[in-house]
Design a protein around this nucleic acid. Structure first.
Length: 665
RNA sequence: GCCACCAUAGCUCAGUCGGUAGAGCAGCCGCCUUGUAAGCGGCAGGUCGGGAGUUCAAUUCUCCCUGGUGGCUCCA
């Protein structure tokens, strides 16, 4: 027998849609209720005083009760249930029947228990729901006891010890009904009126309105723009055919880069040395380029107070699915981007128009989003991810447009340096309000012209989000899934919300506009895109490769036999500033070549008797599949020149393969 | 989160119509001294993801949980 602590309300959290700069809020049209199931030997309760006004009196005979051997369902109706009590009751009944079947009982106690909820339904609809539920269960042949609603009650319970005896569930019914009153925030009201129009904009400025019928997008001839067609249909038709496991997931593990960590939460990964090396190099490159562009690097906390007024208003407007952290004295959420951290710094800065445009930058390791389980996938979608985040303050829309284009060039160069072809490997999704389009059509067209190929433009009848314009560069993978990398937005609201001001030329305080740029998108996603691109290349018969500056091993020295080992070892000293390692195993030459090729080593230098005598290396070049002779100095110079200007890190693992551990078979 | 499917050696998999399991690769030892994607032999390696139930007996059947994949929903 166990006594249940009445205050134990922490086992369920309300899950609301995620939010971030590029998130477009959509009202979650489901309804739900929460139920805590206890399979008990008995439950005894006694009604104390009323918790709610206007609740009918309970007759003396019903003020206390005892039920033996039953499934006790502590339940709450959520605010959202109000719209569809019958539907929720049906879904709840199905759940209860399911569990009652498992624990083999026909006796059920419905016990209204408000403590389970963070946003209670109003008493009326809640009672209605419970009474529906009671009827549903009685109709299915259960003996149902319902304890009085709206009272404080004391109870004693003896819980059976078996594994099914304690369960909690959040019950969801499909409720096409409209939102409940409290939930109708400004954004949602606006969204109800929102009309989204889709277009393809050509670099020439020609605009093609798109329409969707039967899952088919029409209005533009996509010939020669296959990926754009896939991206558009992904966005508009949400069509996703059944495909296989993403190619990058197999590769990230096979190459010993990154792996799942079952000991953490889904979407929190472990990086092996080679993966950490690649990720670190990308992080370094992005940070370096952004700083070179004039942004100032800062660092901000990973967790924030739920009760902070500005944050509260931000979260209220964009209810997010966050990680919750209970500190010794407050409830906090983990950041889902660097927005708050930077805004909170900016609001305390003393700013003049002379300082603008002003950019702050942070590489967030990590940003956290408690994405729905089924949405988490490999390196593509994570719960903890590394996002470079750069916010710029500008005085007005004209400055915003100009600054945005400056940042396009920075982002462009970064992704090119990382090994993506811009714009070939990416598709633009541009979102604008109708008003922005009308007033700044030239700008959008100029953007498409700079991009150099048609882009998707989504137009909203009005601004229902905090930005008037945003774009993302999307990568379309081998499974026809699109993932956004670079994104930038013109935010018209948060300066005001956070109290960020600058003094203009006339000495007046004004709120600036804020640009939200993630120059590369999440670093994990850059790795995902590179791996997917390599996998696509392999499929097309081209050897999959990393850009040279990211290759964990740049040169593999392979002696033909043990006789050449001392010579090969001495060559390592001539490869300063290059990631060179040595296969000192006793494998055959063929085997050693195979090992190196499987690791995508770009230069394999074979050293046999001939090479020792001539002082040359027989270099097998992965990119071209050619074999050429050159000296170690030539090889080194070639690699140094091919990686010029990029960050460099030495080998992540021992140079001798015999000393290298295996992280994963 | 929901629906479906999956989880056997470090890896990729086979197998057990319920009687506690096998291969290849990798690892270790030995032989071979290798000329551009797998040389040969031997050894070792498993609470069959975790918990519970049914059963004389569960890796196998049932349930719950965890992790993963696909879909829904959603996103840097």
């Amino acid at each position: 027998m166990r006594t249940i602590d009445r205050t134990n309300g922490g086992f369920l959290f309300h899950a609301a849609p995620p939010s971030d700069r590029s998130f477009i809020p959509r009202y979650d049209k489901r309804a739900d209720m929460r139920v805590l199931f206890l399979h008990v030997d008995y439950l005894e309760y006694e009604v104390k005083q009323k918790a709610l006004q206007g609740i009918p009196d309970v007759p003396e005979a019903k003020r206390r009760g005892k039920v033996d051997e039953a499934l006790v369902c502590f339940l709450t109706a959520e605010q959202r249930d109000e719209t569809n009590p019958a539907g929720v009751a049906k879904a709840a009944a199905a759940n209860i029947v399911d569990i009652a079947g498992q624990v083999r009982t026909k006796r059920i106690v419905l016990y209204p228990y408000a403590h389970l909820s963070s946003s209670l339904a109003a008493p009326g609809p809640a009672q209605e729901l419970i009474s529906y539920l009671e009827k549903e269960l009685v109709a299915r042949g259960f003996e149902v006891h319902a304890s009085p609603f709206g009272y404080y009650k004391s109870f004693k319970v003896a819980v059976k010890g078996h594994p099914l005896s304690e369960l909690s569930r959040e019950i969801v019914a499909d409720a096409a009904a409209p939102a409940s009153k409290e939930d109708v925030s400004e954004a949602i009201k606006a969204e109800a009126k929102l009309v989204s129009q889709w277009h393809i904009l050509e670099p020439s400025g020609r605009l093609h309105p798109l329409s969707l019928s039967g899952g088919q997008v029409s209005g533009f001839n996509f010939a020669g723009h296959d990926r754009l067609r896939l991206f558009v249909s992904y966005e508009m038709a949400k069509s996703r055919e059944a495909k296989e496991e993403p190619a990058h997931v197999r590769l990230m593990r096979e190459l010993e880069l990154v792996d799942y960590e079952p000991g953490s939460d889904p979407g929190n990964l472990r990086y092996y040395p080679k993966g950490r090396l690649i990720k670190g190099l990308i992080e370094e490159l992005v940070t370096r380029r952004i700083r070179e562009s004039g942004a100032m690097e800062v660092e901000s906390p990973v967790m924030y107070d739920f009760e902070h007024p500005a944050l509260k208003s931000y979260l209220d407007r964009f209810p997010a699915r966050q990680y919750i952290v209970q500190t010794p004295n407050k409830r906090t959420f983990l950041r889902f981007s660097a927005c708050f951290g930077q805004f909170l710094i900016m609001k305390d800065m003393v700013l003049s128009y002379k300082h603008l445009p002003l950019s702050l930058y942070e590489l967030t390791r990590y940003s956290f989003r408690a994405e729905q389980r089924g949405e988490v996938a490999g390196l593509r979608r994570l719960r903890a991810f590394t996002m470079p985040d750069c916010h710029a303050l500008v005085p007005d829309v004209e400055a915003a447009k100009a600054q945005l284009m400056v940042r396009v060039e920075v982002a462009w160069k970064i992704l090119e340096e990382c090994g993506l072809s811009v714009p070939d490997d990416l598709e633009v999704g541009m979102r604008v309000t109708k008003a922005f389009w009308e007033a700044h059509k030239d700008f959008v067209v100029a953007y498409a012209k700079r991009w150099g190929k048609p882009i998707l433009v989504e137009m909203w009848s009005e601004q229902f989000f905090y930005f008037m314009q945003k774009y993302e560069w999307n990568f379309v993978d081998g499974n026809d899934k699109a993932a956004a990398l670079t994104t930038d937005q013109i935010d018209t609201e948060n300066a005001k919300r956070f109290g960020i001001t600058f003094t203009d030329e006339k000495g007046e305080k004004r709120h600036p506009l804020i640009l939200h740029l993630s120059p590369s998108g999440a670093v994990e996603r850059v790795m995902y895109a590179l791996l997917e691109k390599a996998a696509a290349a392999a499929k097309a018969g081209v050897p999959p490769m990393w850009p040279l500056w990211l290759s964990p091993t740049q040169v593999r020295l392979v002696p033909v036999s043990a006789d050449q080992l001392p010579h090969a070892r001495s060559l390592l000293d001539h490869l300063e500033g290059v990631r060179a390692d040595l296969d000192d195993s006793s494998d055959t030459l063929g085997k050693k070549i195979r090992t190196a090729e499987k690791e995508w080593v770009p230069y394999i230098a074979v050293i046999g008797k001939k090479e020792v005598e001539s002082g040359q290396l027989s270099v097998r070049v992965r990119a071209t599949k050619e074999q050429t002779d050159m000296t170690v100095e030539t090889l080194r110079a070639r690699i140094v020149s091919e990686t010029k200007g990029r960050p460099f890190q030495p080998l992540a693992e021992p140079a001798l393969l015999s000393a290298r551990p295996i992280f994963r078979g």
